[in-house]
Each structure stands twice: as C-alpha cells, then as structure tokens.
Amino acid sequence: MSTRGLHAPVRPEWLAQASETALEPEMAIVDCHHHLWDRPEGQRYLFLDLLEDMEAGHDVRATVYLQAKTMYRPDFPPHLQPVGEIEFANGAAAQAASGIYGRRYACAGIVGFADMMLGNRIEPILEALERAGGGRLRGIRNQTARHDDPAITSNPVPPPAGMVADPRFAEAGRLLPTYGLTLDVFCYHTQLDEIVVLADACPETTIVLNHCGCPLGMGPYKGKREEVFAAWSARMKQISERPNVRLKLGGLAMRVNGFDFHEGARPPSSSQLVDAWAPYMLHCIELFGPGRCMFESNFPVDKGMVDYVSLWNAYKRMTAGFADGERKALFHATAAATYRIDNALLGLA
C-alpha cells in the first residue's frame, strides 16, 4: 500500500517562503526523533537532506533516528529483514561521524524495529540488530498507532487492535533493559489507556511516548478540540504518574492531529505554531516535568507543514520563560540521557 496521502507532502518551493532566522542559535539541541527514507512515491529524505536542515541555523549537535520500515533486507528471513534499516541508519551515522560534515552527529542513536509480538522469542533479533548498529542501537519501536476509523491512519498497513496492551508485547518489553534499549511507542490519544497497562507491566523499561500522545483532530474529532483535549489530558495525567515513561514533544504537524498549516499560502510562522501547539506541549511539561520531556522534529513527516528553523523557533518561544536548566533538559539533556548520547560527543562535557 502506498504511503502517499498519509502525511502532508513536502513542497520545497512552498517551504522556501519561510523567512525566519534561528532564535538563540547558541542553544545546543538533540533532535530526538526523525526518519530517513527513499520511497518509490518520490519521497526522499536522506543524510544530506537532514544535514541541510541541521545546518539551517540552529545548533543541532546530534539526532536520533526512528524506525520507519525502510531499507529492509529482502534476502534475510522475515523477522531479520529489519536489520537492513539499522545498517542504513548506521551508514548515515558513519558519514556524520567522519567529521567531513562538521560536528553534527546525525543518527547518533538508532531506534529500530523488532516484532514485539514475539514475546521472549525476540532476543535473537535484538542481538542481530545490535550487531548491525555498530554500538548505536538505542531502542525498539513497532507500528502501533491505530483507530477503527479507516480515515485515521499514520501507517500504510494499520496494526492489529490492542497490540500495545497484549501480554506478549510486554513480555518482549521487559527484555529490553537487558540490552540497554528503550521502548518507543506511538499511539493516538484514544489508545493511551494501553500505555498505562504497558508501563505497569514493564516497570524497569524506559518507555518513550511519541508525539505528545497524539491528540486527534480529524475524522470524528474534527472541530472538537476542547473535548479531545479533556480526554487526552486525563489519560496523559495517568501516564505521567508512571515514572518509567518519557515523552517526546512534537509530531503535531501530522494530518491526524487536524492542524491545516499545509493549506496556507505560506508556511506558518513560529508564533502561529506557538498559538496552536503551546496548550498541548506546555501541559505535557507541567505533567511530566522537563526532565522527562524532549523536543523532536519528526522530520520529514512534519516538514509537510513547517520548516526546520520555524519549528525549533516555536519550541524556543514557548519555553522562553523557563529556567536555563529546564530548557537544557527539554532541548538536549533528556534526549541525551534517554538515548545514551555522550555529552563529550555533544561538546558539553
């Protein structure tokens, strides 16, 4: 199934109309969530595309690559085919680490795919992924975002219902700390009860909830922001009471969230993004605290609605009143600690 239409398409000519310069360009950033891919529908975002965004004005010192079901090895048995994605991301990391491109460590951490529904039979796959990662494998993520309404989808093939709360999923999750790995999870706000079940079932596992818990804004949720916010907030409060959960702030420029910036004549300004997103992100920080939150770009998915400079400017604007230590946590320290990125690598030792 094609991925075309799931997300707003990236339009370079439209994005070129953005004219902001980076605010506080000296602030160190770890972009804790992005993808790389070269897909048959003409979607291409590879190392040099990422590097161009990293060098657009902000001090992005390192990034974390997230599972995107790309570059699988068709010559491998099915459960081991995701090794190809780790090899691919590790290749980009090796390019960045060469020093030819400056001190911008793309893919310093890699989050890959291993089928969590295998339960305790997942271990040989984790070992194969570790070997392919060259010391950079940091976590596992499966495709878990699902809604019964077929119009609400972020994946070409929606996952089965109830997957995150399945005992086999938790059984695999409890093995991850042995390998020093996190468990990244992307769910819609209607699935957040499953995150509570998972966190309780895997108390020693660091679970990283992606994209602010994804408050939906399309389909039956369109035009119901207050109602959705109330339901989302109640579930997020429950999750915040689980100390093993971390939270990524970003991903709200996906179509499923219902924001329509891609329909404007020009890309949104950082001030417009703050107006739209600050209620969600500031509430997340209030619930979880800066030490458990980290900003992400979710590029190139979110690039369909916003350019890289304006995105990070928005994050800087909405936290302008925070203490220095809190901002350091949000922009790099929480991500570095969660994904074991050495401060010496970041130039912060």
Rank of each mutant, 00 (worst) to 15 (best):
I110W: 13
L252H: 12
P279D: 11
A22Y: 12
G250K: 00
H7F: 13
V274M: 12
C107I: 07
F295E: 01
E20F: 04
A96K: 13
A234R: 11
S240I: 13
A132N: 00
G112W: 07
T334Y: 07
R255W: 08
L348S: 04
D166K: 09
A323D: 14
P74Y: 04
S233V: 04
A253W: 09
P82H: 04
R61S: 10
G91L: 00
M116S: 06
F331S: 04
G42T: 15
H79M: 12
R121M: 07
V306Q: 03
A8E: 13
Q43K: 14
L175A: 06
K224N: 03
S271N: 12
R340I: 05
N257F: 03
L183M: 11
F261L: 02
G213N: 06
G250R: 00
F261C: 01
V185G: 05
N142S: 08
N298F: 09
V208A: 04
V306I: 13
G217H: 00
A145H: 06
R73H: 10
C214D: 04
R136G: 08
A56G: 12
E20C: 06
A314Y: 10
D184F: 13
P268W: 11
D260A: 15
N155Q: 01
V197P: 07
M117R: 12
L66C: 06
H332Y: 15
L118H: 12
N313Q: 06
I239T: 03
D38Q: 15
R131G: 03
I140V: 14
E24K: 12
G250F: 00
I195R: 05
H211S: 08
F288I: 12
E55I: 03
P150L: 02
G162V: 09
I29Y: 08
L118W: 12
P177A: 10
H262C: 07
R327H: 08
G84E: 07
A253L: 13
D275A: 14
C187P: 01
D75V: 09
D342A: 15
R11S: 10
Y72M: 07
G5P: 02
C214S: 13
P25A: 11
G304I: 02
R11D: 15
P40I: 02
Q238C: 14
T334Q: 03
A329M: 15
S2V: 04
T144R: 06
D260M: 12
G99F: 05
D193F: 02
G223E: 09
E85T: 00
Q67P: 01
V306Y: 02
V245G: 11
M116P: 09
